[in-house]
């Protein structure tokens, strides 16, 4: 049972993390290749605080605020550069994060932080809590899609220049997307730190940033259900196929490549297309 609880907790944290990126890349169309840095920011912030005996629950809003603040700064960068330039800039931010953390003794440097206190709740309770937070973010995402904010995001993802010509201050909306998305990642990071109770610079590197973007794209960029589903599956897939341990990463990357090559609109796209075919077949 303990194993299943660990799996479910891992899944929930990944879902929250992937949905937070979906907010930025899926809703608002700003591709980020450095999202793991915000997971890391939240994780390090929260771990540092609980190690200084701050209650775990209080560290959640703190992690959100700190990650959201850095997200705001990256959002400012997104006002200067676009598209490919933005993807590379965010990638750079990811490398910069790891590079800086490695050299900070108070964050454990290369070795990372071990012995992070457990959250003040049972493992079952923690699992439920993680699932709850992921669900809250999913519902919030679904709401935003329907709101006028979601309407504007659609427009920005589609064509930012036109959005401005329609009199909408696209910059503010992009900043909002970055702040909300990175704050969500910060909370996921706090959960992550207290789930694994060890964090190191390599937990938040480029591979993690790519993995989470892969979750979003495999799920179907912008689709809340698709992304949540893909994140849940992909986060535990490596654990489930451990018998092919040596080929794990190969399998994973081959899958990702195949997905991009043959079904780039992701699981959500496949479902949508099959549903349409089904409807046509049964008039």
């Amino acid at each position: 049972m303990a194993y299943e609880i660990t799996l479910a907790t891992t899944m929930a944290i990944s879902v929250l993390f992937a949905l937070s990126l979906n907010f930025i890349s899926g809703f608002c169309g700003q591709i980020s290749l450095g999202h793991a840095a915000f997971l890391g920011t939240g994780a390090y912030a929260s771990a540092t605080l609980t190690k200084a005996s701050v209650p775990f629950l209080l560290t959640l809003p703190a992690s959100a605020v700190i990650a959201g603040f850095f997200g705001f700064l990256i959002g400012l960068a997104s006002l200067r550069v676009r598209h490919d330039f933005l993807a590379i800039t965010t990638m750079g931010v990811g490398f910069l994060f790891v590079g800086v953390v490695r050299k900070q003794d108070f964050l454990g440097g290369e070795l990372g932080m071990a012995g992070i206190p457990s959250p003040d709740m049972s493992r079952e309770m923690f699992m439920v809590f993680c699932i709850f937070l992921a669900a809250v973010f999913a519902v919030f995402s679904l709401y935003i899609r329907r709101s006028w904010m979601g309407f504007v995001f659609d427009s920005i993802a589609d064509n930012e220049d036109v959005t401005r010509i329609l009199g909408i201050d696209a910059s503010r909306f992009k900043l909002a997307a970055f702040v909300i998305g990175t704050a969500g990642a910060g909370i996921a990071g706090a959960l992550y730190a207290h789930h694994f109770r060890y964090i190191g610079p390599d937990s938040f590197g480029f591979v993690q940033s790519v993995s989470v973007l892969a979750m979003v794209i495999v799920g179907g960029i912008g689709s809340v259900w698709g992304v949540a589903f893909a994140a849940a599956i992909l986060s535990v897939l490596p654990l489930l196929v451990q018998f092919v341990d040596d080929y794990k990463l190969l399998l994973y990357s081959a899958l990702l490549f195949a997905m991009m090559r043959f079904a780039p609109d992701g699981i959500a796209g496949i479902v949508r297309r099959s549903a349409a075919r089904f409807r046509r077949a049964t008039p």
Binding site: W148, M149, F151, D154, S155, A157, L166, I168, A176
Partner: peptide, 28 residues
Amino acid sequence: QPLHDMSMLDNVALSCGSRKTGRVITAM
């Protein structure tokens, strides 16, 4: 330059909503 991912109606509706899109909070 139409917005390709939305209908003709929504293209215009978004433009009609300047009172709701003027501020991020209001839009939210």
